[in-house]
């Protein structure tokens, strides 16, 4: 059993199945990504795991504690960073952090020390005495994350951590997530940015229409889809006829003419380059470059879910 264990989790709102019988485990110390388009059920799942919503059915265990029955016990060891910044506009950065720390019973000296440390870590010390409402989007996001980790939680839930913020802040936040991972925290992150998931997650679950369609290590997911081998050739010229001849000569391959100089050969088996180059040489075509093309997570996602990757990013914001 993982540090987070979810079994047959369901959430129904009226006739709508927001989360439809999902099960997954998150291992201690890993960054687990929940990747899916808007409305896939990512936030509903986080809300049930953190106590903001009650499951219609199923079980959630966090660090061995039943999160459905004993959610207040679970809330002591988790930190939650919601998809929207939810600090107090009138209070300044320092006051916001101290207040959030007090909700976990931290004493005055302890919370003030921790708040100052986090402001320093997030490069917000200069803005510490400014009201939260005057912060930029990126600063607000960073302070919201700082508030979520002020009590030094063992497990972190981040809902769309970089949505709607500038590239620089998004990069800083991703670095911070990886830093937290190095500190031994277990991180559950939802995102609709494929590149983000690829950069920060160890394992990923693809969620579509409330159902998990695939879970696995990024490398596993890529190699699953990588049962096709692709070689891109840069040539001095290429024609449709030569492409057809390549397909006829080399077993189980397809040749796609990208432009006058580029050709993509796809095969179910590992391609031997020599016969290809020899054929082209016999046709008087010079080969300048042969490059293996690996599948991206985006291609894997599209293949598994049948959802266009562009649909994932319709919430706006910068993937960075």
């Amino acid at each position: 059993m993982g540090i987070i264990s979810v079994t047959n989790l369901k959430k129904v709102y009226g006739d709508v199945k927001a989360v439809d019988d999902i099960s997954f485990d998150v291992r201690s110390g890993e960054v687990f990504g929940f990747l899916g388009p808007n409305g896939a059920g990512k936030t509903s799942t986080i809300n049930m795991m953190t106590g903001l919503s009650r499951p219609t059915g199923g079980q959630i265990y966090i660090d061995g504690i039943d999160a459905v029955k004993d959610v207040k016990k679970v809330q002591r060891i988790i930190g939650v960073i919601p998809d929207e910044n939810n600090l107090y506009d009138e209070m300044n950065g320092f006051e916001n952090l101290c207040f959030c720390a007090s909700l976990y019973g931290m004493r005055k000296e302890e919370r003030e020390k921790r708040a100052a440390e986090l402001l320093e870590q997030f490069n917000l010390t200069k803005a510490a005495n400014r009201p939260f409402k005057t912060y930029s989007k990126g600063m607000k996001r960073k302070l919201t994350i700082a508030a979520g980790i002020i009590h030094n939680p063992k497990i972190l839930f981040l809902d769309e951590p970089t949505t709607g913020i500038d590239v620089e802040s998004a990069i800083q936040i991703r670095e911070l997530i990886l830093d937290l991972k190095k500190q031994g925290k277990t991180i559950f992150v939802t995102t609709h940015y494929i590149e983000e998931a690829e950069r920060i997650c160890d394992r990923i679950a693809f969620i579509v229409n409330g159902r998990i369609v695939r879970t696995g290590l990024i490398t596993e997911l890529m190699s699953d889809s990588g049962k096709e081998y692709k070689i891109q050739l840069k040539l001095d010229r290429i024609t449709k006829e030569i492409g057809e001849e390549l397909e006829n000569t080399i077993k189980n391959c397809s040749a796609e003419i990208i432009d006058d100089n580029l050709c993509l050969i796809t095969s179910k088996e590992r391609l031997e380059l020599y016969p290809v180059i020899e054929l082209l040489k016999n046709k008087g075509i010079s080969v300048y470059e042969a490059k293996e093309i690996k599948s991206t997570l985006e291609e894997v996602f599209v293949k598994i879910t049948d959802i266009k990757a562009s649909k994932l990013n319709d919430k706006g914001g910068v993937a960075g």
């Binding site: 953190t50 106590g51 903001l52 207040k72 016990k73 809330q75 002591r76 939650v80 919601p82 929207e84 939810n86 600090l87 107090y88 506009d89 959030c100 909700l103 976990y104 019973g105 508030a147």
Partner: peptide, 14 residues
Amino acid sequence: KGRSFDRLLLAPIN
């Protein structure tokens, strides 16, 4: 409405 109340509901306070 501003969702700051969620912070109170997410805290380990009964």
